[in-house]
Design a protein around this nucleic acid. Structure first.
Length: 222
DNA sequence: CACCAGGCAAGTA
DNA sequence: TACTTGCATGGT
């Protein structure tokens, strides 16, 4: 095993030991997960919950029902999630793919191979790498590593990568050095979000008892 | 008051 | 290719 692999393994064990199982995604159905993935773009999850709540209470959290909504009304329901006008368009773009290419059959859509599914999702205007990968991992349960702003910040702050690593480079780092296991990737990303929220905050140098303290010294490199 | 939150696309040089 | 900007609510 390489030093990098050992580091990433160690990091996972520390996070799991500190925070325990996260059991993501906090959504009940694949459709809810996918809607949530678009709504949470650069947005606090708490605000997304309000938006999802609005849809649930109105009884319209389904592809069929949401596809019927006029843009302005859809935007109004998801308002608490922020960027509501652009996110309403993004949701409609996604629904159009499902309805026109897959006859509204989400299960069939999700039964594609990982790479084909990812490619299809990325073809939708408004679904980028993180949103697509979140859907692949948390709705289709296929093994792909989700990278986000927390991932980049935590790895750079602990000097495990250079500042210049982009989405793809970070994703490769994890996927080339870990077992390809959707359960592991699921927990790992959720744990990174957790430590990012609680400890490795943006405008703070470090936290007092960070579970990742000294990680870069355990084994060298990256 | 300023800053942040589980991004993405479009515009500029 | 490599920056920059708009999008917006709600919490700290």
């Amino acid at each position: 095993m390489t030093g990098t692999a050992e580091q990433l393994q160690e990091m996972y064990e520390r996070l799991y030991g500190h925070f325990g199982a996260q059991d993501w995604w906090p959504g009940e159905t694949p459709f809810e997960v996918m809607v949530g993935a678009i709504l949470t773009q650069n947005t606090n999850w708490k605000n997304v919950e309000r938006a999802i709540d609005n849809l649930k209470r109105a009884g319209i959290l389904s592809l069929a029902a949401m596809s019927e909504l006029p843009l302005e009304l859809l935007a109004e329901y998801i308002r608490p999630a922020g960027y509501y006008n652009i996110k309403a368009v993004r949701l409609q773009n996604f629904f159009t793919l499902l309805n026109e290419q897959w006859d509204g059959d989400l299960e069939f859509f999700l039964s594609q191979s990982r790479d084909t599914l990812r490619e299809q999702l990325l073809s939708v205007k408004g679904i980028g790498p993180e949103t697509a990968d979140s859907m692949v991992l948390y709705a289709a349960h296929l093994p792909i590593f989700v990278v986000d702003a927390y991932t980049h910040r935590i790895l750079t702050r602990h000097e495990l990568i250079d500042e210049s690593f982009d989405y793809h480079a970070i994703q490769e780092l994890f996927m080339d050095n870990l077992e390809e296991d959707s359960r592991l990737f699921n927990e790992y990303h959720a744990l990174i979000v957790q430590v990012g929220k609680e400890c490795c905050k943006k405008s703070k140098p470090a936290c007092a008892d960070c579970p990742l303290a000294g990680l870069n010294g355990i084994h060298s490199i990256v």
